[in-house]
């Protein structure tokens, strides 16, 4: 069955790839120097992994997510956006308690229009959430479920984008930090692209005032879902063909040995020299993300270029730039 499905999806994959790539290239026309962020958003959306966008207020974080969702043609209920504060209660995120059911002794939440029901979510200032929100979020992000009346209920959430001004280093937020495998900085562009900023900003304002969205409906959510399905099936098939899980260095047809070794060494180097905290989960997720990128950008085989995702694994903002430079330098070395 999976083979059939693979073939079925494979016939669509070229079109899906093109549309998904068009999303990122098209959207970049409406932003200044946000190609990097858009690439990551696309990759993470395709891999259905959460992405954390770090940046000061006014650096287009929300706008990127909103337009991305519009590019996918999502309707109102399919998209959920919220800015968290330390006073935000769970009910604001996952819905208020159903009073009528509560009278019957059942603890159900009315999730219509809330995080559990949406397909794509954008949580702004995610690290400002309190512990009540935190636990719920972790469960949703990691396990894709939440509890209704004590029973786990799968959520519809496919993609999660989060934004923050800064990444706090509190230990209690470590689990949440770790959920975001990739973190990217959305920087201010006024210093080096002042004219473009004004020009494109005005254009966007004008389009908004006339309610025009030329980026809308480039691809669909379905494209992303199929993409993810195809990749999962590929990896499943890979394992069955090569024994074990198929992810063995030297035996993975989609991850050449030398690139895999490079991956391993870079991870080790970053852990030893830069003291990055790279959990086992993160490594697995990174593998998947690299495969996603490779499939999306170049057709499937992971290359050194796909290892650039390793630039986005630091947990602290101050490590972003040094790790970026180091990864780039390591990738430049002769293998």
């Amino acid at each position: 069955m999976s083979r059939e499905r693979i073939q079925e999806l494979a016939s669509e994959m070229e079109g899906i790839r093109q549309r998904i790539n068009l999303v990122r290239t098209r959207l970049s026309e409406f932003f200044v120097d946000k190609e990097e962020v858009l690439d990551l958003m696309t990759i993470c959306a395709a891999a259905q992994e959460p992405l954390l966008i770090v940046g000061k207020p006014g650096t287009a974080k929300s706008d990127l997510v909103v337009k991305f969702c519009q590019a996918l043609g999502l309707s109102g209920d399919e998209y959920f956006e919220y800015m968290l504060t330390k006073f935000t209660e769970p009910g604001e995120i996952i819905g208020p308690v159903d009073i009528s059911q509560l009278k019957d002794g059942k603890y159900f939440r009315r999730t219509g229009g809330k995080l559990p029901d949406c397909k794509i979510a954008f949580l702004d200032e995610i690290f400002k959430s309190n512990s009540a929100i935190l636990n719920t979020l972790l469960t949703i992000i990691n396990e894709r479920k939440f509890y209704q009346d004590g029973q786990p209920v799968p959520v519809n959430l496919k993609m999660l984008f989060a934004a923050t001004n800064e990444i706090p280093e509190f230990e209690e937020l470590g689990a949440l930090r770790d959920r975001f495998i990739l973190k990217v900085e959305s920087k201010s562009v006024r210093d080096h692209s002042f004219e473009s900023l004004v020009s494109k900003g005005l254009r966007n304002e004008t389009l908004k005032s006339f309610n025009q969205r030329p980026w809308e409906g480039i691809a669909s959510l379905d494209d992303f879902l199929k993409f993810r399905e195809y990749l999962d099936l590929l990896m499943l098939d890979q394992g069955s063909q090569h024994g074990g899980d198929g992810i063995e260095e030297g035996k993975d047809p989609y991850f050449p040995a030398e690139v895999f070794a490079l991956f391993r060494r870079i991870i080790k180097t970053l852990a030893v020299e830069d003291r990055l905290d790279i959990s086992d989960r993160k490594i697995v997720k990174l593998y998947k993300l690299m495969r996603t990128r490779a499939l999306l950008f170049s057709g499937g085989v992971v290359t050194k270029d796909d290892l650039t995702l390793l630039q986005y694994i630091p947990d602290r903002l101050k490590d972003f730039e040094p790790v970026r430079e180091k990864v780039a330098a390591l990738l430049r070395l002769t293998v």
Partner: peptide, 12 residues
């Protein structure tokens, strides 16, 4: 030296 460099020497 870079840790990476040592790894390369040890492996490759």
């Amino acid at each position: 030296p870079s840790f990476y460099l040592i790894q390369c020497c040890l492996e490759d």
